[in-house]
């Protein structure tokens, strides 16, 4: 009774083994953010250690005074990583659409394939950074109509998740817990229902847990539920040893995905011995 979902035998891997999102094919199931690192060189080392081939970036006003400083692009190999521009910090659909279009222009200039997709965030509340579902739905519809491959940050609400997919989102990305909170997966049950709804009749539809990861076991737990990938940033960037945590995240993502494919045993209340019952010493022979 305790764990009827998420059990029940091995799962056939979708052929190709890469994370497929619309026209985009990624080798790693980990998408890593580029914010909050102490230095750009530390960021570059951590991205390398994480094994990712897709990194998120934000769009912000250029400094008009003293603009000659370092740019993140001086430290990102744009031939190695597909950049995924986000609309972080937008609280209206209008702002999110504007930022998405600016990100597209920036990436087209760079010749990076990431110009044609966007990580859409429309936030509803400064304190929680939880998504505004109404604005998120509106912006998804507009960006899909504008030709974007939309990867959309949302809550773990299965009904909203399904609506976003129906509007044409290429990937729905439920939060495990609030952005940067490090609380991991707070509602595995909701995520399971999201997965069931989003993959119903469409098992290859990519679902990515975006936000909330605190440590490696959170990534493994998410992947074991059957999500296709995990997007994280703070858990690496603010770890006491970011480089070591980047390695841990890579291993956890692979371990969790393998465990999902392998099919975990059901949970049972009582013990089942691993060693044979027969042939123990001291008893009477039968």
């Amino acid at each position: 009774m305790e764990d009827q979902a998420g059990t029940g035998g091995a799962v056939a891997e979708i052929p190709g083994a890469a994370l497929q999102i619309g026209e985009f094919s990624l080798a790693s199931r980990l998408v890593v953010g580029t914010g909050k690192y102490a230095t750009y060189s530390e960021m570059a080392r951590c991205l390398d250690a994480s094994g990712t081939d897709c990194v998120t970036v934000a769009v912000r006003r250029e400094r008009l005074l003293n603009a000659a400083g370092e740019n993140i692009l001086d430290h990102l190999d744009t031939t190695r990583y597909t950049l995924l521009p986000n609309t972080a910090g937008c609280f209206t659909a209008d702002d999110a659409v504007r930022v998405a279009r600016l990100g597209r222009e920036l990436l087209r200039d760079l010749g990076n394939p990431g110009s044609e997709w966007v990580k859409l965030e429309v936030l509803g509340d400064q304190k929680t950074l939880l998504p505004d579902p109404v604005g998120t739905l509106a912006a998804t519809e507009r960006l899909v109509a504008d030709g974007f491959t939309v990867l959309v940050y949302t809550s773990d609400d299965p009904v909203v998740a399904k609506r976003l997919k129906d509007l044409g989102a290429a990937s729905v990305m439920p939060a495990g817990s609030p952005i940067g909170s490090g609380q991991g997966i707070l509602n595995a049950n909701s995520l399971r229902i999201c997965l069931e709804y989003l993959k119903d009749g469409d098992p290859g539809y990519p679902v990515i847990v975006d936000a909330g990861v605190g440590t490696a076991s959170d990534v493994a737990a998410a992947m074991e539920l059957g999500v296709d990938g995990v997007l994280l940033n703070t858990a690496i960037a603010h770890a006491a040893d970011p480089l070591r945590m980047a390695r841990a995240m890579r291993a956890a993502c692979e371990a969790g995905h393998e465990a999902f494919l392998a099919g975990r045993i059901p949970r049972k209340r009582y013990a089942t011995a691993s060693s044979p019952e027969d042939g123990r010493i001291g008893g009477s022979t039968t």
Binding site: G33, V59, E62, L64, P85, N86, E105, A211
Partner: peptide, 30 residues
């Protein structure tokens, strides 16, 4: 004025009084 101007179109776009421009770049983010 809230519409992206592709780089190749910048030299041909004459500015007018009270135009509003945003000039953005990429930064680290999650």
């Amino acid at each position: 004025n809230e519409h992206v101007v592709p780089r190749v179109e910048l030299p041909g776009r004459v500015l007018h009084q009270d135009d509003r421009l945003e000039i953005v770049t990429l930064v680290g983010g999650g």
